[in-house]
Amino acid sequence: MNYRALNHEDIEVFSEAISAFFLNMTHEPAVVRTAYLLDGTASPLWGDFNGVIDVSGGFRGSITFSAPHGMLSQVLQAIGEREHSVDRCLDVVGEIANMMSGRARRHFGEELAISPPSARLRTVPPAAARATGVPFAIPLRWHAHEANLVVHLDIRR
C-alpha cells in the first residue's frame, strides 16, 4: 500500500482548525505559529495533557493536542466550566483533538475515520497504527501558554 506525507495545504487545515476552536469556544484567538517538521533532532514537546485521535480508513497515524495544565484550566474557565480537575483537563484536551480531527475530515473526506479521543497525563497514548512519515508540530500561544498540535499522518495515494 502506497502512502504520501502531508503537504502544505493539508497542514494549513490544521492551523485553521486551531484558530476556529479558540475563537468559537473561548472568544479569544490563539496565535498559531508556523508548522515545522519534528525530525530526529527535535523533541516532541509533549505538555502536561495529551489528547490523541487515531485515524484510519485510507489514512494511518494520529493527531495529538498537547497542552499545559494552565492553558486547559483557562480554556475550561472561558467556556464556563467550574471544575478544573485533572479529569476535566483530560476531557477537554481529548475534545480539542477531536474537533481538530473533525475539521481535517472535512478537508480529506469521509474516508478519514476518526476514533473517540484518548487522553493521558504526562504521557502520550500509543497510536493504533503509526504513520511512517515525519510528524509535523504546529505550535500555538494562547493566554501566555504554549501548546502544540502534532500531526503524524500518512495518506493513501
Binding site: 476552536f21 468559537n24 469556544m25 477531536n98 474537533m99 473533525g102 475530515r105 472535512r106 473526506g109 469521509e110
Partner: peptide, 24 residues
C-alpha cells in the same frame, strides 16, 4: 466535530433533525 456534508446527510437520513458543528 464530524462536519463533512456526507456525515450530516447520513445522520439526517437515520432520523436526525438538525446538525451543529463543533467547535460552536
Amino acid at each position: 466535530a464530524l462536519s463533512d456534508k456526507t456525515t450530516a446527510l447520513r445522520a439526517i437520513s437515520k432520523g436526525a433533525h438538525g446538525f451543529l458543528h463543533k467547535p460552536f
